[in-house]
Simulated assay, not measured.
Amino acid sequence: MSKVTNIGLLDVRNIKKDLAEKITKISNVGLLIESDESQELLQDCKKSNVGTTLKLSGEINTIKQNGDIELDREYLEGILEPVIILVNGNLTIKEDVDSKLINDRIYSVVINGTLICRKNLLGSIQSKGIVNGDVLGYKKGYNFISENIKLNDRFLKGLKPNSKLAFNRLQITEEIDMELLQEKIANIDILGELIIVDSYEDEIPQYIDEYYSINKTVIPKGAKYIEEDIKLDDSLIKKYNGDIVYVDGEVELYLEEDIEANDHIKTLICSKVICDEKGYNIIKDCLDEEVEIEIIKGKLLKNISKMTLEGYLEEELTIKNMGKLVIGGNLNWDKFNKNVQSIINYGLIEVPKDKINIVKAKVKDNCGKIKTSEDNTDDLQGDEKILYSNMGELKL
């Protein structure tokens, strides 16, 4: 009695009867490819945590890409028989591809990422399989630019006159030669987000399709624009001189000295400020009225992927877990009790069984799961063993 677990792509279309009889569980599989015959042979096999299942008959070749891939006409014409395309990343279909070529060359597609193509191709691609991510469709005749672009004179000089451009994210925050813009730009299609200075709202909308219905952020003229979360400490705040600071995200505030925030920042605009009581008292008169405030004790320890907490914690902490947090058995629990002020959990916390109540007492908000290390075992019983594990691709 055996199990198959942690496989990226598992192809069981041609599995033999004697092997199928040995397998009692298939788990943690990204893509499972089956046939009518294999489904019958594995009908008593328990399947869990399978991302996508495809049922195919016969042998069909696959193209696998871990990362972004672009498909143009030349690439697809080089494929002799229809294929399955598996992409862990973004798939871009270039302008010279049409729906007939897609139907002739692509049997199925599974995209764990973003699909980017002309709007009139979206139906052809989506009918072929599954997109686990965003879908970005731009208008026919437009040139799609995938990078996050700052629209400035240098960028405009490299364009052909009367260009039609599509952007996922476009930033218009610098001075622009409007005569140059008029020469180079015919139309702009925004698929994701536009960041624009308020002083351009009278001149730019005529170039942007459906300007008043797109997702946009309007920032004050002269503001210092920061496009990601930041940690604002003594050193960074001193770099500003009465500026308006616009942060497209959250600000973690760590001010140790007695600083007059108004001397450096006139207005701080962001989605949220995370700080302690002292920091809030320093920065409160600089905050835009729509900024959310989160008061914490100590420093913020934020986990968005996987983190192991162990050893000595020598300073006060508030922990925000949005991934998997493993609290190790060799952690100094006296220091944990003393210095961890609270835990905000949106993910998974794994902790030794005899310490779980200590951890739960620290959890202020729990929108995730807390389990013991001893629970981190497979739910199979008896003498079952792992037959295959931790493989990118497996064909049985």
Rank of each mutant, 00 (worst) to 15 (best):
I344Y: 14
Q206I: 15
E203A: 13
V251I: 08
I356C: 08
K266R: 14
Y225R: 00
I343A: 06
N88W: 14
K239I: 05
L156C: 12
V351M: 06
L191W: 09
K128W: 09
C270F: 09
V29F: 03
E252W: 03
L136K: 06
E175A: 13
E203L: 14
I60S: 09
D189I: 02
L31C: 08
K184F: 11
E59N: 14
K184H: 11
K324Y: 12
N337P: 12
K221C: 11
Y346M: 02
G329H: 07
D258C: 00
D153R: 03
V351C: 11
R105N: 11
V87Y: 11
L32F: 10
D44C: 00
S35T: 08
I259R: 03
L115P: 07
N152E: 13
G137T: 07
D177L: 04
I79P: 11
N143D: 13
N357W: 07
Y346L: 02
N262F: 11
C45D: 06
E201C: 15
N339P: 14
L41N: 08
L287M: 05
E384M: 02
I214W: 14
L136H: 02
E250G: 00
I63A: 06
L232C: 03
I176L: 10
G123L: 05
T52W: 06
D134Y: 05
D234K: 00
V247M: 03
F144W: 00
G279L: 00
K3E: 14
R13L: 10
K224D: 15
N90Y: 05
K150M: 05
D98P: 02
V291C: 09
N162E: 15
I204W: 12
K17D: 15
N332C: 09
A361C: 04
I145H: 03
M322A: 13
N187V: 04
I358R: 02
K47A: 02
N330K: 06
T62H: 09
D177I: 01
T62W: 04
Y346R: 00
N376I: 03
L396I: 14
